[in-house]
């Protein structure tokens, strides 16, 4: 008695249990009808394997085109959220360049001030700032008498005469001045 055709198909697909598969195999070897059925399954498999899907290449290109367009749109839409893989040395180098850049901008904004202050500092090398706390004029006078540094010119009047204030200080042109008048 021949097995069911569905069972033969299952055998051909190698999906039967090994015990049943052996019995079906021995039956097919001695049965022409079942052997013809298995031969039909083999021819059908060969035919399906050799067939090409109509328009397969065009369909493939069309799908790839759609994927490419979607990729470009997504790239522009989420640019600021994009994660870049940057190595640490490159990141540190970029940070150092940014610091140099902003330092350069600051130097460019205040060149004249720094330049003038440097010049003044060079010229005042012999000058000493007076920073003393005094509580009365006697202390101030004592300090003035004691410290001669910080002056370009020091003059001592070789006279024992007592000097006094003779009115308002004046600054006049020599042409407008005649001594004693």
């Amino acid at each position: 008695m021949c097995p069911d055709s569905q069972l033969v198909s299952t055998y051909y697909d190698k999906e039967l249990d090994q015990r049943w598969s052996g019995e079906i195999k021995s039956h097919i070897a001695g049965c022409d009808k079942c052997g013809i059925q298995v031969s039909k399954y083999q021819e059908m498999s060969k035919l399906l394997g050799s067939c090409r899907v109509p328009g397969e290449q065009e369909m493939k290109l069309r799908v790839l085109g759609v994927i490419e367009r979607r990729r470009k749109v997504e790239y522009h839409e989420v640019f600021w959220k994009k994660h870049l893989a940057v190595s640490v040395p490159v990141l540190m180098g970029a940070a150092a360049l940014m610091i140099i850049f902003f330092a350069g901008i600051l130097m460019g904004f205040f060149p004249s001030q720094t330049r003038d202050s440097q010049v003044v500092e060079e010229i005042r090398t012999h000058s000493i700032g007076i920073n003393v706390q005094v509580i009365n004029l006697e202390d101030a006078a004592a300090y003035i008498l004691a410290d001669d540094s910080g002056f370009d010119l020091l003059i001592t009047i070789p006279s024992n005469e007592t000097l006094s204030v003779n009115g308002e200080p004046q600054l006049i042109r020599e042409a407008d001045y005649k001594r004693g008048q």
Binding site: A141, I144, F151, D152, L153, L154, N160, T162, L163
Partner: peptide, 14 residues
């Protein structure tokens, strides 16, 4: 703009 600083000492004044 930079001053010439002169200190003059007398018998009873600076």
């Amino acid at each position: 703009g930079e001053a010439v600083k002169v200190k003059l000492k007398g018998e009873n004044l600076v």
